[in-house]
């Protein structure tokens, strides 16, 4: 298949992104991730196939979904809207008919050229701000051929490329991507491998190996560390972050990302159990983390990112 016609599963394309890498960027969110972090703030990005979300609180009981659904997945009785997820075929007709935004289909297909047609529209802004294209997710490396083609296409047009990754892919894939990625936003989630497996579904060994591999190849990497109350806000993990700072002095920064529970309504709407109790980190909690991180040796720049 021609590269420009290669298609991938997307969640969204967000223009004017200010926080997904250097400068002003366009962020392409892909759908599907090999990890299943229990605190995931974009739970709609985990599955590789489209998903219908039902936001109960937004439903106005207008029953339009019921009239367009080909499988009878939406039923109404005594002012209550029931959605049978098993009957749903993710056709998205109800989401289109829903006037209140209570139903939303997450995930759509787009070709490399279709994505590039949007990306290239802000080329002047990228050039002026040292920005560019960021591929995020989900996990960009998981849609190997599509992401590779997209990054190559961007490069050919002189657009800076950034990938936001969990680092979990085959080593061969990571190396194949290497010449086409200008900047990595690399997640560091948990130092303790047993806990890493319990909370994300995979071991961190391969991830750490890839971090080392990229660093050895002089890749520009910014480490992003989500801190989730009660899960990884431990001296062990803070010391682990500090150890990486010492081991990799040429990182383009380490950024602490305190947990927020914005993903919870989406998880509920996707019928995905809220697997963690944690609430958005409070200021007091962040202050306590800051003290603990300082005690574990973390530098000022890490503390200031909190």
């Amino acid at each position: 298949m021609d590269t420009p016609q290669l298609s991938g599963w997307l969640l969204d394309i967000q223009r004017s992104s200010m926080h997904d890498g250097p400068g002003i960027r366009t962020t392409v969110f892909l759908k599907g991730c090999p990890l299943s972090c229990k605190w995931c703030h974009n739970p709609e990005s985990q599955k590789f196939s489209p998903q219908l979300a039902y936001f109960t609180e937004k439903c106005t009981l207008c029953r339009r979904c019921e009239s367009v659904c080909p499988t009878g997945a939406h039923t109404f009785s005594s002012q209550k809207h029931s959605f049978d997820r098993n009957a749903c075929i993710q056709c998205g007709k109800c989401a289109k008919a829903c006037p209140s935004g209570a139903l939303k289909l997450f995930g759509y297909q787009a070709t490399v050229e279709e994505v590039m047609a949007v990306v290239r529209k802000d080329k002047k802004y990228y050039d002026a701000s040292s920005g560019g294209l960021t591929v995020s997710g989900g996990e960009p490396f998981a849609q190997f051929s599509f992401t590779l083609a997209l990054l190559k296409a961007a490069r050919e047009e002189g657009i800076h490329t950034c990938v936001e990754t969990c680092g979990y892919a085959s080593t061969e894939q990571i190396l194949t991507f290497l010449p086409y990625v200008d900047y990595y936003l690399f997640d560091y989630k948990l130092t303790n491998d047993e806990l890493h497996q319990a909370y994300t579904g995979v071991s961190n060994q391969k991830i750490l190996y890839h971090l080392d591999l990229l660093y050895t190849h002089h890749a520009k990497i910014r480490l992003r560390c989500p801190i989730i109350p009660g899960i990884n806000d431990t001296p062990e993990h803070f010391a682990g972050i500090h150890a990486l700072e010492v081991r990799y002095p040429d990182l383009c920064g380490i950024e602490i990302m305190p947990y927020h529970d914005m993903g919870k309504p989406k998880a509920t709407a996707l019928c995905r159990a809220n697997e963690i109790e944690a609430a958005t980190a409070s200021q007091a909690q962040k202050d306590a983390w800051r003290r603990e991180m300082a005690r574990c040796g973390c530098s000022e720049s890490i503390l200031n990112s909190l």
Binding site: S17, M18, H19, D20, H41, E57, E255, I256, M257, P258, Y259, H260, D261, M262, P265, T280, A281
Partner: peptide, 22 residues
């Protein structure tokens, strides 16, 4: 209206009522 929430960007109006209040 884009707001920052704990290191992430979000459209304010797409946030749930409680998040907005917070």
């Amino acid at each position: 209206l884009i707001v920052r929430v704990g290191g992430f960007s979000a459209r304010f109006v797409e946030l749930s009522h409680d998040v907005q209040l917070e």
